[in-house]
Each structure stands twice: as C-alpha cells, then as structure tokens.
C-alpha cells in the first residue's frame, strides 16, 4: 500500500456540537437513523448531595467518529462479496453498493459501529473520496466549528499528533488498527 489516509480528532476541544455529523448527513443525503459520522457523548463519575452540599467528580466528553479506514479492516476481511474493500492507493475502505448484498456481516465485524444497514445494503463513511479527488477536504473536516478534525496520510498525522487511537470508551485498537489519531480529552485517559 502506498499510503494510508486517516482522521485526526482533537478531543480536548470538541464541544459535541454535532455539526460534523449533520454536515456529513447533508452532503451524503443520508436517511434518518443513518449516520456516517457520529458524535458520541460519554460521561462518568457522580454528582451527589451529601450533608446538604454537592460533591462531584463528574466528567463528560465527546468523540466524533466516522469510519477509521482500518489497517486491519475486519469489515472487509469478513465481507463475503468483496463489496467492502480497501483501496490500494490510500487505504480507504469503501463499499461498492452494486456488489453489497446486505448480509450485515460487516456490521458484526466492525468494533466501531460504523457500517449501517440502510435500505437493502450497508453504507458507511467513504472519506468523501469524491471531494478528495477534486482536491477538496471531506465535508466533516471543513464543517467543524472548533477546528478539531483533520485528515491526511496517517503517518503524517501520527508524526504531528502522536499515535493514540484508543481512549476510554473506545474498543481495543489492536482489533482493527484504526487509521485514527486522537488527542484525548483530559478525562478520556487515565
């Protein structure tokens, strides 16, 4: 493989505004219930009233996630038809809608809840390859009002931002080796 493209998210400054999610839905004309990029809310800790005063160790943070175009894409490995495939030139994982038979096996194979049945096939983030081929950024990246989303060759992103791909609330990165770099929210790492 020549290159592997991936996403970067600065989770520290993500306000969970859902703008990326909606921009993606609008660009890709996605039906209700289908979200190629999803903003996840996590929270933990407690806020309690004790002896008439409040005590809290609550935390909350967000994670905006699309397909991670994994190095070891279980979705594509398990896909029986080859509809889900990984592109040689940039490692982007795509679904050929004509080939997909909607068996749903990729849904069971992705730890990130990425492939979603919609109609009679599965769809997911295609990294806006159409925009990329026109030299433009993916819709979600350009939408983020906090400027916490970036994309590019994953080795470059890792060089710039390190190689964290797993924070509290995410599955073990060794399962699929996601092409994702996260600058974690202070509460998302121990």
């Amino acid at each position: 493989m020549t290159k592997q493209y991936g996403f970067y998210v600065d989770q520290q400054h993500c306000i969970g505004c859902f703008t990326c999610q909606i921009a993606c839905k609008d660009k890709n004309d996605l039906a209700d219930g289908v979200r190629w990029r999803r903003v996840h809310e996590f929270h933990g800790g407690d806020t309690i009233l004790e002896n008439d005063v409040y005590r809290s160790n609550v935390f909350a943070y967000w994670l905006s996630m699309a397909c991670n175009h994994c190095e070891n894409p279980k979705c594509a490995i398990n896909c029986p038809t080859g509809a889900m495939y990984k592109r040689e030139e940039d490692g982007i994982v795509l679904v050929d809608q004509d080939k997909c038979i909607g068996c749903g096996y990729c849904v069971w194979s992705c730890p990130y809840e990425v492939p979603q049945l919609s109609g009679n096939t599965v769809t997911k983030c295609n990294f806006c390859v159409d925009l990329q081929s026109q030299g433009k950024n993916p819709a979600c990246v350009d939408a983020c009002i906090m400027r916490v989303l970036e994309y590019g060759p994953i080795d470059e992103l890792r060089q710039k931002y390190g190689d964290v791909a797993q924070v509290k609330g995410l599955p073990d990165a060794s399962i699929t080796k996601p092409s994702l770099v996260i600058t974690p929210h202070r509460k998302a790492i121990e």
């Binding site: 004309d29 795509l94 679904v95 050929d96 004509d98 080939k99 806006c128 390859v129 159409d130």
Partner: peptide, 13 residues
C-alpha cells in the same frame, strides 16, 4: 471510474 467512488456522491458536481 471505480463504482464505489462514483457512488460517493457526485450529485454535487
């Protein structure tokens, strides 16, 4: 064009 790429939404073109 690669089908999946074509399917990526050239409706904006």
């Amino acid at each position: 064009a690669e089908p999946a790429v074509a399917q990526a939404g050239e409706r904006h073109l």
